[in-house]
Amino acid sequence: MYTATYPQDSTLRRHYESAKRFAADQPPSDSVLRRHYEQRRLAMTQGSVRAAAPRPAPAPKPAPAVTPARKPQQPATTQEARNDGGFFAWLKRFFG
Rank of each mutant, 00 (worst) to 15 (best):
K61H: 12
L12M: 06
D9M: 03
Q73A: 15
T5G: 07
P58C: 01
P60E: 10
M1S: 14
P75S: 04
T45R: 14
T11W: 03
Y16I: 00
D84I: 12
F88M: 12
R70G: 04
H15N: 11
Q46L: 10
T67N: 09
R40N: 05
A24S: 11
S29E: 15
E80Y: 04
W90H: 02
T77N: 12
Y16F: 15
K71Y: 05
Y16N: 03
L12Q: 15
P58L: 09
F95L: 11
Q26C: 06
R40D: 03
E38G: 00
A51T: 11
R41T: 02
A52P: 03
R50K: 14
Q73G: 13
S10T: 13
H36M: 03
A19V: 05
P56R: 14
R50C: 00
A89V: 01
H36D: 06
P68T: 02
R14D: 07
T3G: 12
L33R: 07
A89N: 04
P27Q: 04
P58W: 04
A65F: 09
A24W: 03
A43G: 13
A57F: 07
G96Q: 09
A89W: 00
Q8D: 15
P54F: 03
A4I: 10
S29W: 05
A76C: 07
K61E: 15
F94T: 11
S29Q: 09
P58H: 05
R40M: 01
A53I: 08
A57H: 10
H15T: 09
L42S: 13
P72L: 03
T3D: 12
R35Y: 04
S18I: 10
A52N: 11
R35D: 12
V66S: 07
P54V: 08
R41E: 03
G86L: 04
S10H: 05
R50T: 09
G96I: 01
S31A: 14
P27C: 01
D9W: 01
A19I: 04
K92F: 07
